[in-house]
Design a protein around this nucleic acid. Structure first.
Lengths: 230, 230
DNA sequence: ACAATAATCATACAGCGTTTGTTTTTGTTT
DNA sequence: AAACAAAAACAAACGCTGTATGATTATTGT
């Protein structure tokens, strides 16, 4: 029966305030501890009020994931553009380094994107696709440049089967007009950095005297040595 | 106030029955939907009764993880031993293939081990170590054999820093007496197959015409080409 | 035979996401 | 200016969760 608060004493942008509180909680207690009621307490509203800004918990999580992808994509694109466009190998390594740096700086965001920390949540593919595509486009653009210059070394790479062209068209409309083969190679490169980083983030890399820094650098060198000519 | 049931009408092995029901639930509704109360309903006991067999929910999850690691380790060791001991490259590929096959056959178990699907749960490292070490030992044993035969190609591999010898000793007591350098190389190999498989399992590999089978085979070939001489 | 132990249950608590119905402010239309 | 519709907040409740407590009873050991 409480009255609706005056406009002045309300939060100016509750939608953002809710997301901020969510990130704060995720950073403090982990993504799995995310709770609408706790967020509401933080923002000084009641839990059902959140439903005025997000239809349900999953929609809030999706919004968080999109924000995380945007932050991640910013980092990837900035790393690529921090080096001249003609130094493709250096750009590739910079993107790889930025990948791990961002993941170590925001491990909770990384797990929110690539792990499954929210019980029962499944990311809506088509909704997230634009932001995921943009984030991956930094890598794909470099690979595609290498391909155009004839410096991409992937002779026996598995052939791309036709069949999902229209989904790829959607992808291109967000990531840029790159060849599908470059995307295919990028997926493997991505899986390598993702493999190492995800193991490191989730503490599944036993610290038996091997440091993540050196191992990751070695893997980046392996990638460039395998996929770049000369 | 209900009496304790007669011995005959009780489940002969409630500890196993609870775990079986848990696996059944994980297989049906996913690991994140695991619920002590639902398990209790399945086994026809009350939820607090589970506490007679597991001190809390996390202990049950740990027991499930250990079972999953055992199943995974069985698969890895069987794959290795399915080929003669002198065909090391073939053994390596068989282990890699078994890795993905097991993951695709039991995606929920895979995510239970390597993901973080249970809210608030953190695996007790020292408790799980023996079973994780055994599972990884199949790969490490082959890598170490290659090293002993001088066929391991990893010249510029990052050096192993001393400092965690005692933890490594514990590891060896469960996995076998292999060189720490072989373990270090195995970690990178593992991260590669893990990267691809985890992306595939979590549906983060967009099906843009690239089939998991072919891509995975290509990656296995890349691994053998990079790390095995001649 | 009797005491101790172990296993089970009912009950309860606090927390969760979500639904429903109500109240009040806000913005628009007449 | 008055009337009205929409939006935004609230309280209360539902069914779910993991877990603690205390009572009760079947089994086991002496």
């Amino acid at each position: 029966m409480s009255p609706r608060p005056r406009k002045e004493q309300r939060h100016p942008d509750l939608q953002s305030a809710i997301k901020d509180a969510a990130w704060q909680q995720i950073g403090r207690y982990g993504a799995s501890a995310l709770s609408l009621r706790a967020i509401a307490r933080e923002v000084n509203i009641t839990a059902p009020s959140i439903y005025n800004y997000f239809p349900n918990r999953d929609a809030l999580v999706t919004a968080l994931i999109i924000d995380a992808y945007t932050s991640f994509g910013d980092s990837q694109l900035a790393a690529r553009d921090s080096l001249p466009a003609d130094q493709l190998a250096a750009r590739l390594k910079a993107i790889g380094a930025a990948y791990r740096q961002w993941a170590l700086a925001y491990p909770q965001r990384y797990q929110l994107i690539f792990g499954t920390p929210i019980p029962g949540y499944e990311a809506p593919f088509m909704e997230v696709l634009p932001y995921a595509a943009r984030a991956l486009s930094a890598l794909v653009s470099v690979i595609d440049q290498l391909r155009l210059q004839g410096r991409l070394k992937a002779e026996n790479y598995p052939s791309v089967q036709p069949g999902d062209e229209q989904q790829f068209e959607v992808w291109k409309s967000f990531a840029g007009d790159y060849d599908v083969f470059s995307l295919a190679v990028s997926l493997l490169v991505w899986s390598r950095v993702h493999g190492l980083v995800s193991l490191e983030i989730s503490n599944n890399l036993p610290p038996f005297g091997i440091h993540g820094d050196a191992l990751y650098l070695y893997e980046l060198e392996s990638i460039t040595a395998q996929f770049i000519k000369e």
